[in-house]
Design a protein around this nucleic acid. Structure first.
Lengths: 201, 201
DNA sequence: ACCTGAACACCGTTCAAGT
DNA sequence: ACCTGAACACCGTTCAAGT
């Protein structure tokens, strides 16, 4: 064994494998990850500084998948809508990743470029700097909250005997989680966009 | 040692101690928790079934702190606003708890009563069952996303040289995280409430 | 440069033993 | 009924050794 002629690992391969573990079970351990990659846990340390960096690699991949509108010609609402939808799509494919991302300050370029694009659109809309930050935060909170909602348990809520009729009915009318999460996100996003537009006048 | 005349532990005491560990460091381990309580890790198993149950106890405490409007006389927007604000206040005091809550289906009465109250208000507003569920989901996603935003790092985003002027300006105009998170939540909630009201007509 | 294997200080959980 | 202490199978990380 020892050093192979061609490296068995790369940050790329590590991130991909870790992400599929997180998707499958909501977490990952280095031994699991190493096994997936046909390698020993200690080998990982030749490519990353530790578990935290692997998490940041996953954030980078999710963020890189977000497509930003290129044209500056569109109106700001269309721009924000497109970013938010792409952002949500990326994270709702990896909802169980989100809880792992809360502990670090974001310094990653790939990530910051998304906020840059939002800031640019809100500036174009005429929001002064402080309001711009609030608008970004509202979108960010709603997108991540909504994507997380698409997470783990197939059944998020389970009504019991003492639940009110209004809630029980609503649950019964519900589609599967995925559909519900998606529709709720789309509806909420439109409410927020319309509300922000009204604020501008 | 061995069995004391008066029990040293209770689910109550365990939940309180665990919550303050989570607030302080974003996570907790059983040895840490046991030490805080002047007890051995294995002692905990006389009161709870394991770490998962301790997490559910914390959820219960956060949810129990939410005050629901009693009067049915108020208009539905006031009711939803009051619930959402109380919900947000409770979780923004424990933002680092939120990521720990994503893995289990909610069956806890204390928790379900909050959704019951929301469902009742939206039913009063005239939302049919399926729309009711969407409205609840929108509020839930936004409240939790916003509360999480108040979490861990004092600095959530850090602009770098290549950041656009629009984003850098916005960050500079920002208040401290706590203020920003609070204002953004309040603004977003009003947008959503107004939007839901417009949907009704 | 890049992998292995042994080692270290941890973790969650179980269980016999004590009162 | 409720706590202890030993035990088990894990975990993340370090580091000398190998090519």
């Amino acid at each position: 064994m020892a050093r192979p002629t061609k490296p068995k690992l790369s940050t790329e391969a590590i991130a991909v494998a870790a992400l599929s573990l997180v998707d499958a079970q909501g977490e990952f351990t280095l031994p699991q990850l190493a096994k997936t990659l046909n390698v020993t846990p200690s080998s990982l340390y030749n490519h990353v500084s530790g578990k935290d960096e692997i998490i940041e690699l996953m954030r980078g991949r999710a963020m890189a998948a977000i497509s930003l509108p290129s044209g500056e010609t569109e109106d700001w609402q269309a721009t924000v809508r497109q970013i938010a939808i792409s952002y949500w799509q990326s994270y709702s494919q990896h909802p169980r990743l989100i809880p792992l991302l809360t502990s670090h300050t974001v310094r990653d370029r790939t990530t910051l470029r998304v906020y840059d694009a939002l800031a640019e659109a809100f500036a174009r809309a005429g929001f002064p700097p402080a309001d711009r930050l609030h608008a970004i935060t509202i979108i960010d909170s709603f997108v991540l909250g909504s994507a997380m909602d698409a997470a783990a348990p197939k059944v998020v809520w389970e009504a019991d005997e003492s639940s009110g009729a209004e809630f029980t009915e609503a649950l019964a009318a519900g589609l599967d989680v995925e559909q519900r999460a998606r529709r709720s996100f789309e509806m909420g996003l439109e409410l927020i966009l319309k509300g922000l537009a009204q604020t501008r006048r």
